Structures are given as C-alpha cells and as structure tokens.
Computed example of a mutant assay.
Amino acid sequence: MATTTRVPQTIDAYLAAVSDPAAKKTLSALRTQLRKLLPKATETISYQMPAFKVDGDIVVGFAFFKNNCGFYPGSGSVVPALKSELEGYTTSKSGVTFPPDEPLPAKLVKKLVQVRLAEIAASAKKPAAAKKSPAKGFQVGVVRTLPMTAPALWKWLTTGADAWLGAGATLKPKAGTPYSVPKRRGAPSVSGEVRSVISGRRLRMTWQPEGWTKPATLQFTVTPKTKGASLLVQMENLPDAETREAMRERWSDILARVA
C-alpha cells in the first residue's frame, strides 16, 4: 500500500501518498473511469483502500501494494465469474493484481463493474435472511492445500502466529489463553482468546479488532492430504458482508504466501 504515516481518509490523500509514479498515474486514471461508470457512487476509504459505494454496497476498491496494483470488486464471486476474460492475470477470488505500468483495459474494468452491479441488484431482491446465517452471522471460509506435512503446517500455525495474526502477535495454543496483536500502520490492534485446541488438527479462537463491538470466531482446521496438507480457515459472526469479503481476501492472500 502507499507509504504513509497514517491511514488516508480520502482517495485524494491516498493517491497523494503513492510514491510510485506509474502506480499513481494508473490508479488516478482508474478512478476517473470509475467515476464515469458509477456517477451516483460515493467515494470512500474501506479497509485502508479507495472504494466506490452505491446504496451502501461496495462496488469496487483499488490499491497499490509495493510492486503491484490491485482491483477488488466488493464480492468474492465476480472474479471467478470472469475467469476466461481474466486469463493471464494474477487473481484471487476477490481481486485482480497487475503491474502499475500495465493498466487493466477499460473494457475489462467496465465488465467487472457491470457484473458486480448485477450481483448487487440480484441480492437486493433476496430476503435479508438469505444473506447470512441467523446463528453464525456473516461467515467465510478459505481453504488451500499447502506443500508441507500436516505436523509442519500445525507447527507453523501455532509457533509462527506473527505470520498470520500480524507483526508482534503472541499466541499460546491453549484453551482459555488470551492473545493480542499490537496496532500497526494501516491495521488496528486485535485481541481475543483461544477457545479450543485439538493438537495437530484444530484451533478455535475469538477475533476482535479495535473498534468492533462484538468478537468474531476464527477457526483453523489442518487435514493431511496425499501431497501436503490442507488448511481451512473459517470465520463466523462477522459484522457485515463488506467485512466478510475483506476477511476472504486477507486469508486468501496469507495462504497464497505460505504456498
């Protein structure tokens, strides 16, 4: 993300803090196009990145991370739906990554926005209860098979918490033990408690970033596979759909780095 001493509060401030000239030019042009595609949208900063919101729903966000730009429809189903059109790009369920000097074609940006708008329109016609589980609130799951044994994966999970919780995190895999993650640039502090541990298999804990009124539940499940081991990350009781997509992106990125 852009280098700054504090989280930008406006898109103008965000772009001003982008030090890479190519990235600044590309993201500024992208912003101009999105303004034309979404004339009634509200510009905002959501999860430390510029975003466009329509009637309370995030349509799309964009960002610059060190060497690449990212384009993020506010849903985990838009990018998979356009898999053929996105061939050749680096993608996750929630976004597309591209070099600063190779902007996304305008037609592709338009198609991504159109698919997201259609999704929002369709969702608005569904009963509210269909958008989340009444018992578990908004929830998300991300799974990936990793090139390591199940014991090695469990060791990484329980002894290298700073790699997935955040720098400075402390975690003791024992039920009833509290943990904390200090606040850092661009990310709030997080606190919680380990709820249950099945050694080598499952870790369940609460997750409450600074500012949240209620904690979410975070669970990791390690499963041996023929080649490697899978790690399933599940979150329950998230406050809203926007947070759900942000968490989907977070854990997808972390598992990709581990792989």
Rank of each mutant, 00 (worst) to 15 (best):
R35C: 13
R35S: 09
K36D: 03
K36V: 08
K36P: 00
L37M: 11
L37F: 05
L37H: 12
L38N: 07
P39T: 10
P39H: 04
A41E: 09
A41H: 06
E43V: 06
E43Y: 14
E43K: 05
E43Q: 11
T44M: 10
S46F: 14
S46Q: 09
S46Y: 14
S46I: 13
Y47T: 12
Q48S: 15
Q48I: 15
M49A: 15
P50A: 06
P50W: 07
P50N: 09
F52Q: 05
F52N: 03
K53F: 06
K53V: 15
K53G: 01
D55V: 01
D55F: 10
D55W: 09
G56I: 14
D57V: 13
I58V: 12
I58M: 09
I58G: 02
V59A: 03
V59H: 00
G61I: 09
G61H: 03
G61Y: 02
F62H: 03
F64L: 00
F65H: 08
F65E: 09
K66P: 00
K66H: 02
N67Y: 08
N67K: 15
C69W: 11
C69P: 04
G70C: 11
G70L: 12
F71H: 08
F71I: 10
F71L: 11
Y72I: 03
Y72S: 05
Y72N: 02
G74V: 03
G74P: 04
G74M: 02
S75H: 03
G76E: 03
G76Q: 05
S77P: 06
V78Q: 05
V79Y: 04
P80T: 02
P80A: 06
A81E: 07
K83R: 14
K83L: 04
S84W: 00
S84M: 00
E85G: 00
L86Q: 03
E87Y: 01
E87H: 12
G88Y: 11
Y89D: 13
T90E: 01
T90Y: 06
T91M: 00
T91A: 05
T91V: 15
S92I: 11
S94G: 14
S94V: 14
T97G: 06
T97W: 08
T97P: 00
T97D: 07
P99S: 10
D101C: 06
D101Y: 01
D101G: 06
E102L: 05
E102I: 09
P103Q: 00
P103S: 02
L104P: 04
L104S: 10
L104Y: 04
P105W: 01
P105Y: 01
A106N: 08
A106W: 00
A106G: 05
V109P: 02
V109S: 08
V109H: 02
V109R: 01
K110N: 13
K111T: 10
L112Y: 06
L112C: 07
V113E: 06
V113N: 04
Q114I: 02
V115G: 10
R116D: 05
A118V: 12
A118R: 14
A118S: 12
A121Q: 13
A121K: 09
A121N: 09
A121C: 13
A122Q: 13
A122R: 12
S123C: 05
A124D: 12
A124F: 00
A124L: 09
A124M: 11
A124K: 15
K125R: 15
K126S: 08
K126D: 10
P127Y: 14
